[in-house]
Amino acid sequence: MAGAKEIRTKIASIKSTQKITGAMQMVAASKMRKAQDRMASSRPYSEKMLQVISHLARATPEYRHSFMAIERPLKRVGYIVVSSDRGLCGGLNSNLFRRLVIDIKEKRAAGAEPAFCTIGTKALGFFKRFGGEVLAQVTHLGDKPHIEDLIGPIKVMLDAFEAGKLDAIYIASNQFINTMTQRPAIQQLVPIVGEEQAEMPHRWDYIYEPDARTVLNGLLTRYIESLVYQAVVENGACEQSARMVAMKSASDNAGNLISELQLVYNKARQAAITQEISEIVSGAAAV
């Protein structure tokens, strides 16, 4: 009966693992809903801001901010890499890093050296192994990221851009398609890629206080911050839904494993009983 006991402890340990993954799945499901709400509520801000910026850009064409300048030849590019702080969320982070490595290779082939700003511990850990120049980092944003925590790292990147040390800044993060699908994506942050809109039907302009330039500067910085914030929040929603899916499949796998082991256990028990009976019968026959 030694085999049966071993199998029983194995089943017990898998059952407790299943309980843990089941609990994590439920926690992730409830967090996911909140993260999705947060994602939706951050949209109006940046949409409104883009509206105002595109109006300003058209109203004062003589002033071009460096963030809106025409593209420079790429010698050095910056990546803001948004990752999760915790693991156990399937291939979410590794898919993103794989996508990023491909992009970096392309940029290197074109003669552009990369520099990074990492958000989240996973990205930081990745660049520690992968190597690469990390200009700024921020970790442990928690489930409710705040824009305050992002201001510093973003400023480092924007300052580098304005000083001419970076020729473009990209943001690498996961896009939330639906609960089952998250897509790693790399988007250009600066120079701002704005779609050229048709001429204004009625020519009008704002009264600026103190002046157009100051207002535009303030708006652009905030706009970029809000884009990064959105990416962070979206990545959070991706993390939770990826974790939910990963934990669900882990629970299912544990269930399959348990039923298989249960079968093996039952067979072993049956065999032991049969053996015992045959021993008793043969013993009785001997007497």
Partner: peptide, 23 residues
């Protein structure tokens, strides 16, 4: 368009330095 953080040039600068230092 409200800021959620208290903003000032020197505070932003400090935050930037902090992020660099951490890296």
């Amino acid at each position: 368009l409200a800021d959620t953080a208290i903003r000032a040039a020197n505070l932003d600068e400090a935050a930037a330095l902090d992020a660099k230092r951490r890296a």
